[in-house]
Simulated assay, not measured.
Amino acid sequence: MGFLSVLSQAQRWVKERAQPGDAVVDATAGNGSDTLFLARTVGAGGTVYAFDIQAEALGKTHERLVAASGEQGNLAPVRLIHGGHEAMESVLDQQLHGRIAAIMFNLGYLPGASTDVITKPTTTVAALDSALRLLRSGGALTVVVYPGHDGGQEEASAVEAWASDVPSSLAQAILYRFPQKAASPYLIALNKK
Rank of each mutant, 00 (worst) to 15 (best):
N191W: 10
G84W: 07
G46W: 10
A182Y: 00
F51C: 05
Y146T: 06
S5N: 05
A113P: 07
E160P: 01
S5Y: 07
A50Q: 03
Q95H: 09
A158C: 01
G84I: 07
D150C: 04
L38H: 02
T123R: 09
L170G: 02
V48G: 04
T41W: 00
L75G: 00
A140P: 00
I103G: 02
G45M: 03
Y176D: 08
M104R: 04
V24S: 05
A140T: 15
V159L: 00
T119F: 02
A140E: 15
A161K: 13
G139W: 13
H149P: 01
L110F: 03
T142C: 09
A27Q: 08
T119E: 02
S5Q: 07
P179Y: 11
G98Q: 10
V78P: 02
E56K: 12
Q153H: 06
T142I: 06
A44P: 03
T123Y: 12
T124E: 13
E56S: 09
D150E: 15
Y49K: 01
Q180G: 03
D26H: 07
Q9N: 08
E154I: 11
Q54A: 07
R17M: 06
F178M: 10
D165I: 03
V91C: 04
G112Y: 03
R17W: 01
E63G: 04
L7P: 05
H149Q: 02
S184A: 14
D34Q: 03
G2Q: 11
D150K: 11
Q11M: 14
Y146S: 05
G70N: 13
T142L: 06
E16H: 08
A68L: 14
G112P: 05
F105I: 02
Q153L: 15
A163S: 14
V66T: 15
T41A: 12
R40N: 07
V145Q: 01
T35L: 04
G83H: 14
D116M: 06
V14Y: 00
A39P: 03
G139D: 08
D52T: 12
L128C: 08
